[in-house]
Design a protein around this nucleic acid. Structure first.
Lengths: 165, 165
DNA sequence: ATCAATTTTCTTGACGTCGAGATATGTGGG
DNA sequence: CCCACATATCTCGACGTCAAGAAAATTGAT
């Protein structure tokens, strides 16, 4: 089955036959697939009245385990957004009653963000919904193919994740 | 080599041992890699004084071939943005002299966006730079692995690209 | 011809993010 | 002690995107 990147690559080969556009075969597919996934995620979360950014913050706290609390700084590094953005997100989540701000007992500059019971439940429900949807998307591939794909992708992500970048 | 998704999956398995989180092994890597690629692209384009969104529009026109012109509607479907966004982008590119708006001779509602000579040169230079950078990222993989990865990704993107989504 | 439905592009207002800087607290050398 | 520097979080203004809808032209059925 042909996809949009096949058409894109064919167009470049026609217009710029002097260039080697093979890298696009992999990386343009990664970018486009991510874009499609964003839209699909937005739909899946809408059933739980959550925005993708809310899910990202709530699940970061959920993964931390009891007592489900992290500093804003830790949330920054996990979600790859800037501090201004995170302040705004915490404000809105707190207003919805999904998280609460607590003073950090060991550092008076600091704050701890803790998941409320409702926040934890919402995160758990949304995760289950997301996984169902992702399974449907991945049904195109056999289990062995999924494993292979995960391994190849890991080789590309590891340098970004391990070198300070 | 371990990556951030390995850590993320391990955390979920600890916190939610009841859930099958295998889908994340593939799709979280796709999303995270796309995010890293966005940052890398931004850096590569900065050397040519282009923003990623400018590149997207200019190269869509470039790929169309002479006379390098498309309607705003055609640009929408290629770049996956909304019409308000595209109007804004065309305005700014026109102000920079990289594209120009022409009336569509066959439909008086319509407009054609045409690449200027400078726009074409800038697009060509930026593409060469992008490909260099992408080749460096993909150097982690052998040619055979890149082909395999491209094929597996195509199976996932094809349904999105071919079913009206 | 006429009119409703469709298509194409642009306008507008709300929203979320970023980046730079402000404020407050903590840390270590002299 | 004191001061410079580092760290943690928040504030604020600019910017790009989106969604909804307005304006203008085309199409097709009657």
């Amino acid at each position: 089955m042909e996809d949009e990147v096949d058409r894109l690559v064919a167009a470049w080969r026609r217009e710029r036959p002097d260039l080697d556009v093979e890298p696009l075969e992999v990386l343009s597919r990664v970018s486009r697939l991510a874009r499609h996934l964003d839209r699909a995620r937005r739909l899946a979360f809408a059933e739980h009245n959550l925005e993708p950014w809310e899910f990202d913050v709530l699940t970061a706290l959920r993964r931390a385990g009891t007592p489900y609390q992290l500093s804003p700084g830790q949330l920054l590094t996990q979600t790859l957004v800037t501090s201004g953005t995170m302040t705004n997100r915490i404000d809105r989540l707190a207003k919805k009653g999904l998280v609460e701000r607590l003073p950090d007992p060991s550092d008076r500059r600091g704050v701890l963000v803790r998941l409320t019971d409702e926040g934890r439940d919402r995160a758990d429900q949304a995760l289950a919904g997301l996984l169902d949807q992702e399974r449907a998307i991945l049904a195109e591939l056999s289990r062995a193919q999924r494993g292979e794909l995960a391994g190849l992708l890991r080789q590309l992500t590891a340098p970004f994740d391990n070198i300070p970048g």
